[in-house]
């Protein structure tokens, strides 16, 4: 009989899991050494935290901004939930000229 489980694996090649999906959570922040030039989180924020729960200062967090750019796997398509950039934010500052242009081209 056909082994469905194997067949499925053969049919749909699984996407390679991203590093983000497979990376483990850091358990002890004090054991992490960062490359030169990267600041560690402020020690005084974590004097009384529990294992695996850390506070991070802004300067530490900002260091990730230009490195972690990959779109999260489970982010829904934004247009589907009505979350789209509004171009009116740039054009409607004075007299709504953006809008009147749009209505002209419609007529």
């Amino acid at each position: 009989p056909l082994n469905l489980q194997t067949a499925n694996i053969g049919l749909i090649p699984p996407a390679l899991p991203s590093a983000l999906a497979t990376a483990r959570h850091i358990e002890d922040i004090n054991r992490i050494t960062y490359p030169e030039g990267i600041k560690s989180p402020k020690v005084e924020l974590n004097v009384n935290t529990q294992k695996g729960k850390f506070r991070y200062d802004r300067d530490f967090l900002l260091q990730f901004m230009n490195i972690c750019k990959e779109k999260p796997d489970h982010l829904p398509p934004l247009d589907v939930i009505g979350l789209e950039p509004s171009d009116t934010a740039h054009t409607m500052s004075r007299g709504g000229s953006g809008r009147s242009r749009a209505s002209n081209s419609m007529s």
């Binding site: 959570h25 901004m65 972690c68």
Partner: peptide, 25 residues
Amino acid sequence: VISFDSVEEFWGLYNNIVPPSQLPQ
């Protein structure tokens, strides 16, 4: 929109979503 529990995931979201200045009214 999404749930996340790591710094890395937060920035992945931040870098792929609309900032407040570009949201509709």
